[in-house]
Protein backbone atom coordinates (compact mmCIF):
# COMPACT_ATOMS: atom_id res chain seq x y z
CA UNK A 1 0.00 0.00 0.00
CA UNK A 2 1.36 3.39 -1.03
CA UNK A 3 -0.38 6.57 0.12
CA UNK A 4 0.35 9.99 -1.35
CA UNK A 5 -1.05 13.09 0.32
CA UNK A 6 -0.54 16.44 -1.34
CA UNK A 7 2.83 15.33 -2.65
CA UNK A 8 4.59 18.29 -4.26
CA UNK A 9 8.06 18.86 -5.66
CA UNK A 10 9.27 22.21 -6.86
CA UNK A 11 12.49 22.80 -8.77
CA UNK A 12 13.00 26.53 -8.94
CA UNK A 13 9.96 27.87 -10.78
CA UNK A 14 8.84 24.50 -12.08
CA UNK A 15 6.37 22.35 -10.23
CA UNK A 16 7.58 18.88 -11.19
CA UNK A 17 4.95 17.23 -9.03
CA UNK A 18 1.89 19.23 -8.13
CA UNK A 19 -0.23 18.19 -5.17
CA UNK A 20 -0.67 14.48 -5.93
CA UNK A 21 -2.95 12.54 -3.61
CA UNK A 22 -3.91 8.93 -4.24
CA UNK A 23 -3.56 5.45 -2.80
CA UNK A 24 -2.02 2.53 -4.62
CA UNK A 25 -3.71 -0.57 -3.34
CA UNK A 26 -2.56 -4.20 -3.12
CA UNK A 27 -3.71 -6.96 -5.42
CA UNK A 28 -3.74 -5.03 -8.67
CA UNK A 29 -1.38 -3.45 -11.15
CA UNK A 30 -1.60 0.32 -11.02
CA UNK A 31 -0.30 2.04 -14.12
CA UNK A 32 1.26 5.46 -13.74
CA UNK A 33 0.86 7.14 -17.06
CA UNK A 34 1.97 10.41 -18.50
CA UNK A 35 4.13 11.96 -21.18
CA UNK A 36 7.85 12.31 -20.59
CA UNK A 37 8.53 15.03 -18.06
CA UNK A 38 5.14 14.64 -16.37
CA UNK A 39 6.72 13.98 -12.96
CA UNK A 40 6.39 10.19 -12.80
CA UNK A 41 10.01 9.49 -11.93
CA UNK A 42 10.18 12.34 -9.43
CA UNK A 43 7.07 10.97 -7.72
CA UNK A 44 8.63 7.52 -7.47
CA UNK A 45 11.88 8.97 -6.15
CA UNK A 46 9.96 10.79 -3.43
CA UNK A 47 8.16 7.57 -2.48
CA UNK A 48 11.60 5.95 -2.06
CA UNK A 49 12.90 8.83 0.03
CA UNK A 50 15.57 9.67 -2.55
CA UNK A 51 14.16 13.15 -3.12
CA UNK A 52 12.59 15.19 -0.36
CA UNK A 53 9.08 16.51 -1.17
CA UNK A 54 8.64 20.28 -1.09
CA UNK A 55 5.27 19.59 0.52
CA UNK A 56 3.11 16.61 1.36
CA UNK A 57 3.88 13.04 2.31
CA UNK A 58 4.37 9.63 0.75
CA UNK A 59 3.78 6.63 3.00
CA UNK A 60 4.68 3.03 2.22
CA UNK A 61 2.92 0.44 4.35
CA UNK A 62 1.96 3.21 6.75
CA UNK A 63 5.40 4.76 7.23
CA UNK A 64 7.70 7.10 5.32
CA UNK A 65 10.09 4.92 3.34
CA UNK A 66 13.19 5.98 5.28
CA UNK A 67 11.67 4.83 8.55
CA UNK A 68 11.68 1.20 7.49
CA UNK A 69 14.70 -0.47 9.05
CA UNK A 70 15.21 -2.90 6.17
CA UNK A 71 13.14 -1.36 3.36
CA UNK A 72 13.89 -4.00 0.70
CA UNK A 73 11.58 -6.32 2.65
CA UNK A 74 8.78 -3.79 2.18
CA UNK A 75 9.39 -2.23 -1.23
CA UNK A 76 11.27 -3.37 -4.29
CA UNK A 77 11.96 -0.74 -6.90
CA UNK A 78 13.40 -0.54 -10.37
CA UNK A 79 14.13 3.11 -10.98
CA UNK A 80 16.38 2.81 -13.94
CA UNK A 81 18.52 0.10 -15.43
CA UNK A 82 21.61 2.28 -15.18
CA UNK A 83 21.40 2.71 -11.42
CA UNK A 84 24.31 0.37 -10.82
CA UNK A 85 28.11 0.25 -10.89
CA UNK A 86 29.07 -1.15 -14.29
CA UNK A 87 32.34 -2.53 -12.97
CA UNK A 88 30.64 -4.85 -10.52
CA UNK A 89 29.60 -8.39 -11.45
CA UNK A 90 25.84 -8.95 -11.54
CA UNK A 91 26.04 -11.38 -8.62
CA UNK A 92 28.06 -8.97 -6.47
CA UNK A 93 25.70 -6.11 -7.32
CA UNK A 94 22.76 -8.10 -5.97
CA UNK A 95 24.82 -9.50 -3.09
CA UNK A 96 25.71 -6.08 -1.70
CA UNK A 97 22.05 -5.04 -1.92
CA UNK A 98 20.94 -8.26 -0.23
CA UNK A 99 23.49 -7.94 2.56
CA UNK A 100 22.47 -4.37 3.31
CA UNK A 101 19.05 -5.72 4.21
CA UNK A 102 20.07 -8.94 5.91
CA UNK A 103 19.15 -11.15 2.96
CA UNK A 104 21.20 -14.30 2.27
CA UNK A 105 23.25 -15.40 -0.75
CA UNK A 106 20.80 -18.15 -1.65
CA UNK A 107 18.15 -15.57 -2.40
CA UNK A 108 20.53 -13.79 -4.80
CA UNK A 109 20.90 -17.00 -6.79
CA UNK A 110 17.13 -17.49 -6.76
CA UNK A 111 16.28 -14.06 -8.15
CA UNK A 112 19.01 -14.31 -10.78
CA UNK A 113 17.36 -17.51 -12.00
CA UNK A 114 13.94 -15.89 -11.87
CA UNK A 115 14.91 -13.08 -14.20
CA UNK A 116 16.93 -15.36 -16.46
CA UNK A 117 20.38 -13.96 -15.70
CA UNK A 118 21.85 -16.99 -13.91
CA UNK A 119 24.22 -17.67 -16.81
CA UNK A 120 25.69 -14.18 -16.80
CA UNK A 121 25.84 -13.74 -13.02
CA UNK A 122 29.64 -13.51 -13.14
CA UNK A 123 29.69 -10.91 -15.90
CA UNK A 124 30.26 -7.26 -15.11
CA UNK A 125 26.98 -5.33 -15.18
CA UNK A 126 28.49 -2.70 -17.48
CA UNK A 127 28.66 -5.23 -20.30
CA UNK A 128 24.89 -5.84 -20.14
CA UNK A 129 22.44 -4.67 -22.77
CA UNK A 130 19.67 -2.32 -21.67
CA UNK A 131 17.26 -5.24 -21.51
CA UNK A 132 19.60 -7.29 -19.34
CA UNK A 133 20.12 -4.22 -17.14
CA UNK A 134 16.35 -3.99 -16.70
CA UNK A 135 16.23 -7.64 -15.70
CA UNK A 136 19.04 -7.12 -13.20
CA UNK A 137 17.19 -4.14 -11.75
CA UNK A 138 14.04 -6.24 -11.45
CA UNK A 139 16.04 -8.99 -9.72
CA UNK A 140 17.14 -6.35 -7.21
CA UNK A 141 13.52 -5.31 -6.66
CA UNK A 142 12.50 -8.91 -5.98
CA UNK A 143 15.35 -9.61 -3.51
CA UNK A 144 13.45 -8.85 -0.31
CA UNK A 145 10.26 -10.60 -1.43
CA UNK A 146 8.49 -7.27 -0.85
CA UNK A 147 4.75 -6.60 -0.71
CA UNK A 148 5.12 -3.40 -2.71
CA UNK A 149 6.83 -3.22 -6.10
CA UNK A 150 7.57 -0.13 -8.11
CA UNK A 151 8.88 -0.11 -11.65
CA UNK A 152 9.79 2.98 -13.62
CA UNK A 153 9.36 2.36 -17.37
CA UNK A 154 10.26 -1.34 -17.08
CA UNK A 155 9.63 -2.19 -20.74
CA UNK A 156 12.13 0.38 -21.99
CA UNK A 157 14.75 -1.32 -24.08
CA UNK A 158 13.19 -4.75 -23.87
CA UNK A 159 12.63 -6.98 -26.89
CA UNK A 160 9.08 -8.27 -27.54
CA UNK A 161 9.79 -11.42 -25.58
CA UNK A 162 11.01 -9.35 -22.66
CA UNK A 163 7.92 -7.17 -22.78
CA UNK A 164 5.64 -10.19 -22.55
CA UNK A 165 7.80 -11.50 -19.71
CA UNK A 166 7.45 -8.22 -17.75
CA UNK A 167 3.71 -8.14 -18.35
CA UNK A 168 3.33 -11.69 -17.05
CA UNK A 169 5.56 -10.98 -14.07
CA UNK A 170 3.59 -7.86 -13.10
CA UNK A 171 0.26 -9.68 -13.41
CA UNK A 172 1.58 -12.56 -11.34
CA UNK A 173 2.99 -10.31 -8.59
CA UNK A 174 -0.38 -8.55 -8.33
CA UNK A 175 -2.27 -11.85 -8.29
CA UNK A 176 -0.26 -12.80 -5.21
CA UNK A 177 -1.76 -9.81 -3.45
CA UNK A 178 1.18 -7.47 -3.85
CA UNK A 179 0.96 -3.78 -4.60
CA UNK A 180 2.34 -3.18 -8.09
CA UNK A 181 2.98 0.36 -9.32
CA UNK A 182 4.33 0.74 -12.86
CA UNK A 183 5.05 3.87 -14.81
CA UNK A 184 4.99 4.20 -18.56
CA UNK A 185 4.43 6.75 -21.27
CA UNK A 186 2.86 4.08 -23.49
CA UNK A 187 -0.89 3.97 -23.10
CA UNK A 188 -1.47 0.75 -25.02
CA UNK A 189 1.23 -1.06 -23.04
CA UNK A 190 -0.39 0.01 -19.79
CA UNK A 191 -3.88 -0.89 -21.00
CA UNK A 192 -2.67 -4.44 -21.52
CA UNK A 193 -0.97 -4.73 -18.15
CA UNK A 194 -2.71 -2.52 -15.63
CA UNK A 195 -6.04 -2.78 -13.85
CA UNK A 196 -6.09 0.85 -12.89
CA UNK A 197 -4.55 3.90 -14.51
CA UNK A 198 -3.36 7.07 -12.88
CA UNK A 199 -2.64 9.70 -15.51
CA UNK A 200 -0.48 12.73 -14.82
CA UNK A 201 0.58 15.66 -16.94
CA UNK A 202 2.88 18.50 -15.86
CA UNK A 203 2.94 17.06 -12.38
CA UNK A 204 -0.84 17.23 -11.97
CA UNK A 205 -3.29 14.39 -11.59
CA UNK A 206 -5.38 14.21 -14.77
CA UNK A 207 -7.31 11.00 -14.30
CA UNK A 208 -7.57 8.05 -11.98
CA UNK A 209 -9.79 5.25 -13.24
CA UNK A 210 -9.92 1.58 -14.13
CA UNK A 211 -8.91 0.59 -17.64
CA UNK A 212 -12.57 -0.19 -18.48
CA UNK A 213 -13.66 3.25 -17.35
CA UNK A 214 -10.98 4.71 -19.54
CA UNK A 215 -11.96 2.83 -22.62
CA UNK A 216 -15.60 3.75 -22.22
CA UNK A 217 -14.63 7.43 -21.95
CA UNK A 218 -13.52 7.51 -25.53
CA UNK A 219 -15.86 8.93 -28.12
CA UNK A 220 -17.98 6.33 -29.98
CA UNK A 221 -19.72 6.70 -33.31
CA UNK A 222 -20.95 4.69 -36.25
CA UNK A 223 -19.53 5.18 -39.71
CA UNK A 224 -22.29 4.85 -42.29
CA UNK A 225 -22.25 4.65 -46.10
CA UNK A 226 -25.62 4.71 -47.77
CA UNK A 227 -27.39 5.24 -51.11
CA UNK A 228 -29.16 8.43 -49.97
CA UNK A 229 -27.11 10.24 -47.35
CA UNK A 230 -29.36 13.27 -47.20
CA UNK A 231 -32.55 11.31 -46.69
CA UNK A 232 -30.83 9.12 -44.11
CA UNK A 233 -29.56 12.16 -42.27
CA UNK A 234 -33.09 13.48 -41.87
CA UNK A 235 -34.29 10.15 -40.49
CA UNK A 236 -31.37 9.73 -38.10
CA UNK A 237 -31.53 13.32 -36.85
CA UNK A 238 -35.22 12.88 -36.13
CA UNK A 239 -34.34 9.79 -34.08
CA UNK A 240 -31.88 11.79 -31.97
CA UNK A 241 -28.58 11.20 -33.76
CA UNK A 242 -26.05 13.85 -34.69
CA UNK A 243 -24.31 13.56 -38.02
CA UNK A 244 -21.00 14.68 -39.41
CA UNK A 245 -20.09 14.09 -43.01
CA UNK A 246 -16.56 12.99 -43.84
CA UNK A 247 -15.30 11.75 -47.23
CA UNK A 248 -18.79 10.88 -48.38
CA UNK A 249 -19.33 8.75 -45.27
CA UNK A 250 -21.43 9.86 -42.37
CA UNK A 251 -20.32 9.72 -38.77
CA UNK A 252 -23.34 9.14 -36.57
CA UNK A 253 -23.13 9.93 -32.90
CA UNK A 254 -25.77 9.00 -30.35
CA UNK A 255 -27.25 5.96 -32.11
CA UNK A 256 -26.15 2.35 -32.17
CA UNK A 257 -25.49 0.47 -35.42
CA UNK A 258 -28.61 -1.64 -34.78
CA UNK A 259 -30.79 1.44 -34.44
CA UNK A 260 -29.31 2.95 -37.60
CA UNK A 261 -29.85 -0.27 -39.56
CA UNK A 262 -33.46 -0.52 -38.43
CA UNK A 263 -34.15 3.15 -39.18
CA UNK A 264 -32.63 2.86 -42.67
CA UNK A 265 -34.66 -0.24 -43.39
CA UNK A 266 -37.83 1.55 -42.26
CA UNK A 267 -37.05 4.47 -44.56
CA UNK A 268 -36.20 2.15 -47.43
CA UNK A 269 -32.59 3.40 -47.76
CA UNK A 270 -29.94 0.92 -48.78
CA UNK A 271 -26.93 0.70 -46.44
CA UNK A 272 -23.56 -0.23 -47.94
CA UNK A 273 -21.41 0.13 -44.88
CA UNK A 274 -21.97 0.27 -41.15
CA UNK A 275 -18.92 0.32 -38.82
CA UNK A 276 -18.76 0.98 -35.11
CA UNK A 277 -15.88 3.25 -34.26
CA UNK A 278 -14.27 4.21 -31.01
CA UNK A 279 -11.45 6.55 -30.12
CA UNK A 280 -8.33 4.51 -29.38
CA UNK A 281 -6.82 4.57 -25.91
CA UNK A 282 -4.03 6.63 -27.38
CA UNK A 283 -6.53 9.23 -28.58
CA UNK A 284 -8.14 9.28 -25.13
CA UNK A 285 -4.69 9.68 -23.62
CA UNK A 286 -3.66 12.47 -25.96
CA UNK A 287 -7.01 14.15 -25.45
CA UNK A 288 -6.30 14.27 -21.73
CA UNK A 289 -2.60 15.08 -21.75
CA UNK A 290 -2.38 17.13 -24.91
CA UNK A 291 -2.23 20.43 -23.05
CA UNK A 292 0.25 19.12 -20.56
CA UNK A 293 2.97 17.82 -22.83
CA UNK A 294 5.99 19.87 -21.96
CA UNK A 295 7.98 19.62 -25.13
CA UNK A 296 6.03 19.73 -28.35
CA UNK A 297 7.99 19.09 -31.47
CA UNK A 298 7.41 21.61 -34.25
CA UNK A 299 6.71 18.88 -36.73
CA UNK A 300 4.23 16.10 -36.48
CA UNK A 301 2.14 17.35 -33.58
CA UNK A 302 -1.00 17.23 -35.75
CA UNK A 303 -0.34 13.61 -36.50
CA UNK A 304 0.66 12.74 -32.97
CA UNK A 305 -2.62 10.99 -32.25
CA UNK A 306 -2.16 8.79 -35.27
CA UNK A 307 1.30 7.68 -34.20
Amino acid sequence: MIELRGLTKRYGDTLAVDDLSFDITPGCVTGFLGPNGAGKTTTMRMILGLDAPTKGTALVNGKPYAEHQFPLHEVGALLDAKALHGGRRAFDHLLCLAQSNGIGRKRVTTVLEQVGLADVAKKRAGTFSLGMGQRLGIAGALLGDPGVLMFDEPVNGLDPEGIVWIRTLLRWLASEGRTVFVSSHLMTEMAMTADRLIVVGRGKLIADATVEEFTSQGEQWVQVRSAKPDALATVLTAAGGTIKTADGDQQVHGLTSTQIGDLALGAGIAIYGLTEQRATLEEVFFGMTGDSVEYHGLLGTENASAA
Partner: peptide, 18 residues
Protein backbone atom coordinates in the same frame (compact mmCIF):
# COMPACT_ATOMS: atom_id res chain seq x y z
CA UNK B 1 31.84 9.47 -6.05
CA UNK B 2 31.53 6.23 -8.06
CA UNK B 3 28.08 5.80 -6.49
CA UNK B 4 27.04 9.13 -7.97
CA UNK B 5 28.91 8.85 -11.25
CA UNK B 6 27.42 5.43 -12.04
CA UNK B 7 23.93 6.07 -10.67
CA UNK B 8 24.34 3.28 -8.09
CA UNK B 9 23.60 5.85 -5.35
CA UNK B 10 19.84 5.62 -6.04
CA UNK B 11 19.89 1.86 -5.59
CA UNK B 12 22.17 2.13 -2.56
CA UNK B 13 20.10 4.74 -0.75
CA UNK B 14 16.88 2.88 -1.51
CA UNK B 15 18.46 -0.11 0.24
CA UNK B 16 19.94 1.91 3.11
CA UNK B 17 17.80 5.04 3.46
CA UNK B 18 19.49 6.11 6.69
Amino acid sequence: SSEYTTGMIRTSLAAVPN
